[in-house]
């Protein structure tokens, strides 16, 4: 009976394993097979022409990369500092519990709500207008819970024995954190942040109302500039441009997928090989 039970569980887990792998691989292959036909050097390196029917998607690629960098600039310093404070400094109590609750809830807020928040606060109240800055701030706030959580988990994973060793050698709390805990947790923090950023990279709703443009066939000029971005570009050409060749739509999807996956692989690599750096 027990043996049968164990076999059944094993079989179920194997099926689930292949289901997950199969779905992921299937999705990637599906998009790659269709996208590869529309892919060319011109597609990733030229300005779009004729409402995207010809030319390339360079401004959308650059827009997405710059937007993601801007998001990182906002969210990583804030999130890491918050995570360090909560793990290393804050005394456990009602205040910390409240902050934890807030972080969990922030992670659950729908992305369009972040978009509207960004519109109200960054675009209108702070008068940034629809711009790279406003969109980066919006995505940055959205990614904050991921970075805070990744930081806290990475810090909590630093073995107590190492902290004690450093304290016992007469290190102050600041020194233990700076020279010791953070370097040890670095790969976990960076890896977790990259995962959060790759999520932000593919978001459409929050940038929709905070600065993205469909048609802006030039590269963004600064934080105040509006910008093109791959997810929104994809949405428009897939739904709003009559006569758009499917190969161009799939090639756009493939480009976005490639960027997101590059970030994810970087994150996975760091988490796996960077331990204890």
């Amino acid at each position: 009976m027990n043996r049968f039970h164990e076999r059944a569980v094993n079989a179920l887990l194997t099926v689930l394993f292949w289901l997950v792998i199969g779905t992921t691989a299937g999705l990637i292959l599906f998009i790659a097979a269709r996208g590869i036909k529309g892919m060319s050097w011109e597609f990733v390196s030229a300005m779009p022409r004729d409402r995207g029917l010809a030319g390339g998607v360079l401004p959308a690629i650059v827009g997405t990369l710059v937007l993601t960098s801007g998001t990182a600039l906002v969210t990583v310093p804030l999130g890491v500092l918050a995570g360090v404070y909560l793990t290393e400094y804050a005394r456990p109590g009602p205040a910390v519990r409240l902050v934890n609750l807030a972080i969990v809830n922030l992670a659950g807020v729908p992305s369009i709500v972040y978009g509207l928040f960004g519109l109200a606060v960054f675009v209108l109240s702070l008068r940034l207008g629809p711009s790279l800055a406003a969109a980066s701030l919006t995505l940055g706030v959205m990614t904050l819970p991921v970075v805070v959580t990744a930081t806290r988990e990475a810090l909590a994973a630093v073995p107590v024995a190492y902290r004690e060793a450093a304290y016992a050698l007469g290190a102050s709390r600041r020194q233990v954190i700076l020279t010791h805990v953070l370097p040890y947790a670095k790969s976990g923090i960076v890896g977790g942040s990259l995962l959060g950023l790759s999520r932000a990279m593919g978001e459409t709703a929050p940038i929709l109302v905070t600065g993205v443009a469909f048609w802006l066939p030039r590269l963004p000029t600064g934080p105040a500039s509006r910008f093109m971005a791959l997810p929104y570009h994809l949405y428009i050409i897939a739904t709003q441009v009559p006569g758009m060749p499917p190969a161009r739509i799939w090639a756009t999807a493939l480009t976005l997928l490639g960027l997101v996956m590059a970030l994810n692989f970087a994150a996975a690599g760091l988490r796996r090989y960077g331990k204890g750096g």
Partner: peptide
């Protein structure tokens, strides 16, 4: 202080 388990830094 020296601890029960060796705990050199990585």
């Amino acid at each position: 202080m020296v601890f029960q388990k060796p705990n050199p830094f990585p």
